[in-house]
Nucleic acid binder design. Sequence first.
DNA 1: ATTTAGACGTA
DNA 2: CGTACGTCTAAATC
Length: 884
Amino acid sequence: MTDSAKPTLLVVDGHSLAYRAFFALPVDNFSTKDGQHTNGIYGFLAMLINLIKAEQPTHLAVAFDTSRQSFRTREYSEYKANRSESPSEFKGQIPLLQDCLAAMSITVLQKEDIEADDILATLATQGAEAGFSVLVCSGDRDTIQLVDDDITLLYPNVQGVSQLKRYDTAAVIERYGVRPEQYPDIAALVGETSDNLPGVPKVGEKTAVKWLGQFGSLDALLENADKVTGVVGANLREHIEDVRRNRTLNRLLRDVELPVGPLDLAVQPMDAQAVRDIFARLEFKTLIPRVAELAGIEQQMAAVTSAAAVPMPVAVEPSPTDLRAWLDAAAGEVGVTITLEGGLPNRIGFATADAAAEASWTPEVSEAISGWLASASPKVFSDAKPQVKALRRAGIRLGGLAFDTSVAGWLLRPSFPDKTLADLVDRYLDEKLPEADPSQLVPETEGATPGQLSWFALRVTAALRAELSPSVATVLSDIELPTLLALADMELAGVSVSHEKLAAFSSDLGERADAFALEAYAAIGREVNLGSPKQLQEVLFDELHLPKTRKTKTGYSTDAAVLADLQETNPHPFLDLLLQHREATKLRQIIESLDSAIQNPASGGDGRVHTTYVQTGSQTGRLSSTDPNLQNIPVRTSESRRIRAAFQVGDGYDTLLTADYSQIEMRIMAHLSEDPGLVEAFISGEDLHRFVGARVFGVQPEEVTSAMRTKVKAMSYGLVYGLSAFGLSKQLRIEQAEAKQLMMEYFARFGAVRDYLRSSVERAKIDGYTETIFGRRRPFPDLASPNRVLRENAERAALNAPIQGSAADIMKIALFRIHDDFASHELRSRVLLQIHDELVVEIAPGEWDAAERIVRDRMGGAAELTVPLDVQIGRGDDWNDAGH
DNA sequence: ATTTAGACGTA
DNA sequence: CGTACGTCTAAATC
């Protein structure tokens, strides 16, 4: 509990935290082009910025040690004598860090013969006396003794500098079992290896706490040392002088003479130019906006309030020719909103910063403004794709798409995308979008008109741009917006699916499912709803008395993996029949939903299935597909591939082409980790799992058995998801020890992979987000969660996000370039489907060679990685034929 | 009528 | 105790 009326003094141990940051971050990723290492500086500053943002101190200082010598080394020459020389890469970072702090107008303190923690102790003591709420941030446990009602310690976690644990008096008692002022007594008894201060042998925290509880104080304990029984008692008596020495040395000085006091440490405005200069020199690109944000909060607030003063314009409704003139006269970007009726434009509205115009969609309006809509004149939309499609249906190809608020909102917060313009107005303008009250037949409140919606979209655009980092802005303009236009065309094109093929298969499956069901009932002597997990639990565990399986929220699991396990340990005919029934009904289900999605030619449809790609549907940058989902059409069993066979080349086209990236995620892993072995695997062109298997098992590639290959394959793929030994053992049905051994062997040969994965998560903890190769970001607040489950889930997701996300970026780039190339080469061939690492293309007569070349070149050349991007192409009359 | 949980399809 | 999705059914809830 902090007293908000009190000023807050934050004092930081610069040396110890920078040193921790140095070990937490990979030195390779943080070097300037002239070879200066900067990982310690970066990590420290990132942490400090976060800290200032979170704690909002009014007063601030950072203390440093001057050298390894201090009054303590003079008192006890062995003090810290075990510390190895700090690595050469670290040297030189401290003076540069101090330069950074100076540019940020943050006071730096150091004093000959005195350690940084003594400076912290002095300032904290003076600050508490002067009425400050004091925060001490240090990586040295001795500072625990400073904690009291006014002084709180922020101590870095073992995981790194990114997470600071808050120690107030209660937290110290909870963690160490003693009051803060008693902690040095514990430390004196236990000793401090890192300071080369041996304590009493066999005495750890538990014993020390017990003793202090018994005797009341360290002095009392030492006086009554003869009363302590056993080996530890003897040890205590033998090392009593060590304990006294330790206690002297770990007492922090609270009365160091300093040139400044707490009141002199008020936070000062930064020297913006100096900050820019030194950060540029250190090549800290991402830190600059974060520091600026810290420094410029007041300005930003002012900007927001003044912007709210502009009144919402009333839209004019000019004649078609006047509307065209209005658009031509508009300077800069124009907000555009098209409302739809039956897939076609209904009303269309436009806005500039202070005016709006709108019209109903008529042939005259269309005629008058189609040229402007197709032109490069910049336009801003909110959720452009359906509107782009409506225009396409009306024969107009939109040009000049400059911004989409929905996509931008998603890029900024992919985990909680603001779904509508109203959400964005709420969040980024802190205003309410006027909405018609849907509960009343005659709404009391007017909704915004298309022109006014456009005006809001334009204003939201300005607010979103202010928050987009340069890299994310580039992802929006260079990847997402071109992709949006390609997706619109893909959705319009749809894919031809044969009702006849589906229908035949479906009735097949129906009969089989019924037969399995009857047999299953016979096996247990009653009917049961096989689709009800609840009823199945009764059958399996109450009636058949099979052993309880994995727990779920509501009972015990009956999923396929569990049933397969049960079949092995407690074979029963019902289990297998249930699995077969499930498989058949699942397939039939998929077929039914697919069939009903075919636009029936009998009622004016085109006999094709038109999915909707949700561009803002994932947290990683992937697309998702709905109504129907065409990204989860079965492929694994030969049986299920009959469904793919129903996806066929459409009338007027020649053949289907499928193109997929082979092992794109592992290639990205090779690129990001620069693991020499993995890179060699891909450059050699040998089968990846065979190559890896040979290394891991120490045999020749041709000696890799299929069992070995299966294992390393599972391991390789698992890596991308943050797999544990436990998970690997379950997946491969091997002992955990063997899984552990496999991981050890794997990392022994491909160590840079592990280094990369570790450091990438560590970096995410410091930055608060992950980044793909192309700069797409995903925030991970839960990386700092004290809840272990939440945190570890976030760690696995953060490990996966840059890899899955980079693959998504690459595919999007390939996709829109192929789409655009087809158009510019005036091919009729068209991309129909995207299934994450695969494209399905419909090839027009005579265009195979040209189209195949474009697909191959664009997919292979979508990114320059240190390993090649391998593309597999297939050809056939249906998707199954064309696949491989 | 809508929501939740379990199951399962894909990359 | 492996990431990212969407959709189906049954059952629970409104």
